[in-house]
């Protein structure tokens, strides 16, 4: 009986393939239609120009040429790249270093550890928009819970219009976002640290290694794979950030475009339409999306290349 069924299965190899295909088909169809397809079609769209939702006039690489050479576009575009890079780097270093510190503190057994972890992670569950609006109110110079505290502490000179100054707005908004997302690296590093064998750490302690040396010479090297994952997640998430700027600085990245990121530039150009015309320029929007895509791909491929190399070492 068993062999008979087995033979039947083998002889029905094609039928089996068909079954697998029908299982995969719904997922594939919706994924291609609403995600992969539009992503690739955006590359094509960037070669066209025209107003409204159907750019039909083929212009080759003209949109890219404008983006890089026409001062009207170039300054905003390069500005957006610069701001996005700063936004990303603040996350990369501030968020991830503190995440690593918190994870290291949470990796030992003590009372209340779960409570701390729950609190640290809590903002990550909230909507970015809500967090952005909330901090706008708290940093507001009129009510400004933050400024009230600073004044009460006798630090009146530091009670600034945080979001109103060109040199302050971007770092402050980035730190707000760090406040929200710091739980992610914390939890990921914590998982990595828990994976390190207790025996190894115990042995090093018995050998008289200080906590500092223990961290840098044993834990840190073993955490490298997790650090890699955290780094690439930070990169992809932050090169794509939009909501927090929209909530705290508006779609134009106020003040004076000083917080304008690639995603806000993309939104204004391709979807909302730039002031004063208010008509979206989809071809140019697609060109900005494609450039963002290329930056992301370059980062991801470099990351894959280097993480492969580490595995081979």
């Amino acid at each position: 009986m068993a062999t008979f069924i087995k033979d039947k299965w083998m002889s029905n190899e094609n039928k089996r393939k068909l079954t697998w295909l029908t299982f995969i088909l719904p997922a594939l169809l919706i994924y291609v239609t609403f995600m992969a397809g539009p992503l690739f079609d955006s590359l094509r769209l960037s070669l066209y120009t025209g107003e409204g939702y159907n750019p039909t006039h083929f212009v080759g690489f003209q949109n890219y040429h404008n983006l890089f050479t026409n001062p009207l576009w170039r300054d905003k575009f390069l500005g957006a790249i610069k701001h996005t890079t700063i936004f990303f780097l603040i996350h990369m270093f501030v968020q991830n270093s503190f995440g690593l510190l918190f994870a290291n503190l949470l990796s030992t057994e003590f009372k209340g550890k779960t409570v701390y972890r729950t609190i640290i992670f809590a903002p990550a569950t909230l909507s970015v928009l809500v967090v952005g609006f909330l901090w706008t109110l708290i940093l507001n110079p009129q009510w400004g819970a933050v400024n009230q505290i600073l004044i009460a502490l006798g630090l009146k000179q530091f009670a600034l219009p945080w979001l109103g100054r060109e040199n302050l707005a971007l770092p402050i908004i980035s730190l707000t976002s760090v406040w929200q997302w710091i739980g992610m690296p914390t939890v990921l590093f914590l998982a990595g640290l828990i994976g390190i064998s207790d025996d190894l750490i115990e042995a090093a302690r018995i050998d008289g290694a200080s906590e500092w040396r223990l961290f840098w010479h044993i834990k840190f090297p073993l955490l490298k794979p997790v650090i890699g994952i955290v780094a690439i997640l930070t990169f992809v998430d932050n090169f794509n950030a939009f909501d927090v700027i929209y909530a705290m600085a508006g779609a134009k990245g106020e003040p004076a475009y000083s917080t304008d990121l690639l995603a806000t530039l993309f939104y204004r150009t391709g979807i909302a339409g730039e002031h004063p015309v208010g008509i979206p320029n989809m071809g140019m929007g697609a060109a900005i999306a494609t450039m963002t895509f290329l930056i992301l791909m370059t980062g991801v491929l470099l990351w894959l290349y280097f993480s492969r190399q580490q595995v081979n070492d």
């Binding site: 697998w20 995969i24 997922a27 594939l28 994924y31 239609t33 609403f34 995600m35 992969a36 397809g37 539009p38 992503l39 690739f40 079609d41 955006s42 769209l45 939702y53 159907n54 690439i232 992809v236 794509n240 939009f242 995603a263 993309f266 391709g270 979807i271 989809m282 929007g285 697609a286 999306a289 494609t290 963002t292 895509f293 992301l296 791909m297 991801v300």
Partner: peptide, 27 residues
């Protein structure tokens, strides 16, 4: 073929869907 499909699916983890927004709007 199934490995290729799997990679095609998980590639989406690294590429934000927002970049395709303009075509999604048209669709």
């Amino acid at each position: 073929f199934s490995i290729a499909l799997y990679i095609f699916f998980i590639a989406g983890l690294m590429i934000p869907i927002r970049l395709g927004t303009l075509d999604i709007v048209r669709l």
